[in-house]
Simulated assay, not measured.
Amino acid sequence: MKLQTQVSLKKAKKQIDYQSRLLLLGSCFVENIGAKLEYFKFRTMQNPFGILFHPKAIEKLISKVIKGEVYSVDDIFHQNERWHCFDAHSDLSDPSKENLLLNLNNALAQTKEQLSVATHVLITLGTAWVYRHKESDTIVANCHKVPQKSFYKELLSVTEIAESLRRTIDLIQAEDPKIQCVFTISPVRHLKDGFVENQRSKAHLIAAMHEVLEDSKLEAEISYFESYELVMDELRDYRFYKNDLVHPNDLAVEYIWEKFSSVWISENAKNTMASVEEIRKGLQHRPFYPESEQHRKFVESLERKMEKVRQNHPFIDFTV
Rank of each mutant, 00 (worst) to 15 (best):
E31T: 15
D170H: 06
R21L: 01
V182P: 11
M1N: 10
L3A: 14
E293T: 15
L213W: 05
S63E: 15
M273K: 11
F225T: 14
A141I: 13
D87G: 02
T111K: 00
N32V: 14
R43C: 06
P187Y: 01
P187C: 00
E234S: 04
E160Y: 00
F315G: 07
E81Y: 13
D137G: 02
Q294W: 03
E81G: 10
I256T: 09
Q46P: 10
F288Y: 10
R132Y: 01
A174L: 09
Y255P: 13
N243T: 14
S63A: 13
I185R: 01
L104E: 03
I139Q: 02
E254Y: 10
R239E: 11
D87Q: 07
L115G: 00
G34D: 13
K270N: 07
S223L: 04
H144D: 08
L37R: 05
N198T: 08
F225G: 08
V117D: 06
H313Y: 15
C181R: 04
I172H: 01
C143N: 04
W83P: 12
K149E: 15
R82Y: 12
K11A: 10
K11S: 12
K14T: 14
S261M: 04
H144K: 04
H210V: 09
R280V: 07
H210E: 06
L235R: 06
P248G: 08
L25R: 11
N103Y: 06
E135V: 10
L61V: 11
D87N: 10
Y224I: 04
D137C: 01
T138D: 11
Y18R: 04
D193Q: 05
Y152C: 12
D17I: 03
E197I: 04
P147Y: 02
L3E: 14
Y228V: 09
K305V: 06
R286N: 06
E291K: 11
G34Y: 08
L302E: 05
K64G: 02
L102G: 02
M273H: 09
F86D: 04
L122A: 00
E229M: 03
D215Q: 13
F40T: 13
F29M: 09
A162F: 01
C28R: 09
R304S: 12
Y241I: 11
L61R: 09
Y289L: 10
G126T: 02
L245M: 15
D75F: 02
V73K: 10
D74N: 15
V117W: 00
Q110W: 04
E307G: 03
W129A: 01
L9M: 09
Y238R: 06
W257T: 11
F40I: 10
K36H: 15
I279H: 01
M306N: 04
E234L: 02
L102P: 01
S63Y: 08
I279A: 02
E300Q: 12
A220V: 07
I51R: 05
K242P: 15
W257H: 00
K36D: 11
H144S: 03
Y71C: 07
K11M: 12
D94N: 15
E113A: 13
V276K: 02
D237W: 05
K305Q: 08
E258A: 03
L104Q: 00
K67V: 09
E98F: 03
H89A: 11
T138E: 15
S93K: 00
N312E: 10
E135P: 06
C143R: 03
E229K: 03
F86H: 09
V121T: 07
L100K: 08
F195G: 05
R166C: 12
P187A: 01
F53D: 05
